[in-house]
Amino acid sequence: MSAAVALTVAGSDPSGGAGIQADLKTFSALGVYGTAVLTALTAQNTRGVTGVHAVPAGFVSEQLATLFADVTVHATKLGMLGTADVVHAVAAALAGRPGGPVVCDPVMVATSGDRLIDDAAVDAVRSELLPLADLVTPNVPEAAVLLGVPPATDVDQLAAQATALLGLGPRAVLLKGGHLGGEDSVDVLATADGVTVTRRPRVDTTSTHGTGCTLASALAALAARHRTGDWARLVDPARDYLQRALQAGGTLGVGSGHGPVHHFAGIWER
């Protein structure tokens, strides 16, 4: 049997904690062969983003077409796409579903607070990518932007907004509640079968760079490895992986701001 293959379509993070670097590390940690199509170059570190250079949409299309012509991809993770033109290109390339289940992390704002996507791209994500997505994984601010409503402030509102996002076309929504605060980190999975709430103890750490990228890519990796889009089955192991990465992030000592999570926690030590 050939290796399970996952694809990340996202921007690059020179500091290695987020973007395609985080995705490829996550794929590897979870036993999946990683492929990558770059949509943007960023100048960033653990303290913030100082610049974004978009890859031309035509070259994003060429990367995708060339990859799919040769490599069988079992699951695809979408991250920062940056511009409306790139969103159009990615949506067109995935319309025939050559990359297996699609996990869309609608990256709009970095952990540092820096905006990573323009308004036209937000509209394109809403209208073109969400209907293609098998799973969309927004955080609280991103869900509010996509729905045009105030951010959720409690678990009931999380559930209501996750359900509302289903109306935009994705087959499932994992609304991440980390912004709510509290002793637990609460996520809500909404599917056609209903709403499921998952909780993990909140990790007291500043090493949170790349958490959203890591969770979405873990879900894509598990979907590729198990050849399934049964998200109710995959959310818990993906969250467990992220929990370990968060707990060990501080041991890396990388950077002086929001350090990265430890994608190889429990692996390097062995």
Rank of each mutant, 00 (worst) to 15 (best):
L24G: 13
G48N: 03
F59V: 14
G58V: 06
T42G: 09
Q21P: 13
G51T: 02
V49H: 01
G17Q: 06
I20Q: 14
V49I: 02
Q21N: 09
L30Q: 12
G17P: 08
G16A: 13
G17D: 12
P56I: 00
T39P: 08
V52D: 09
L30G: 09
T26W: 06
Y33F: 15
V32F: 08
A18R: 05
G48S: 04
L41H: 07
V37G: 05
V37M: 07
S28D: 12
F27A: 04
N45Y: 00
D23F: 10
T35L: 03
P56M: 05
G16W: 12
V52S: 06
A43R: 00
T42S: 12
K25Y: 03
H53A: 11
G31R: 15
G16F: 14
A18E: 12
T26L: 08
L41Y: 09
T26I: 12
T42K: 09
V55N: 00
V55T: 09
V55K: 02
G51W: 00
T46C: 14
D23W: 06
F27M: 12
G34I: 00
L38H: 03
A18F: 13
I20A: 15
N45M: 02
I20C: 15
Q44C: 06
F59P: 00
G16P: 13
L24H: 11
K25C: 03
A22R: 12
D23Q: 14
L30A: 11
T26R: 02
K25E: 11
H53G: 02
V55R: 03
G58F: 07
T35S: 13
T26N: 08
G51K: 01
A57P: 07
A54H: 13
A29F: 02
G48M: 01
P56R: 10
T39M: 08
G48Y: 01
F59D: 08
A22E: 10
V32Q: 09
Y33D: 05
A29P: 07
A57H: 11
G31S: 13
V32D: 02
K25W: 08
R47P: 02
A36N: 04
G16R: 15
A36I: 00
V32S: 07
T26G: 02
Q44F: 01
H53N: 05
P56H: 00
L41C: 05
A43F: 02
V37L: 06
A36G: 07
A57F: 04
A29C: 10
T50K: 00
Y33S: 06
R47I: 00
H53R: 10
I20T: 15
G51S: 08
G17M: 10
A54S: 09
Y33W: 14
L38G: 07
N45E: 06
L38P: 02
A18I: 04
A36Q: 01
Q44T: 02
T35H: 06
G48F: 00
L30N: 13
D23N: 13
G31H: 13
F27W: 10
V49D: 05
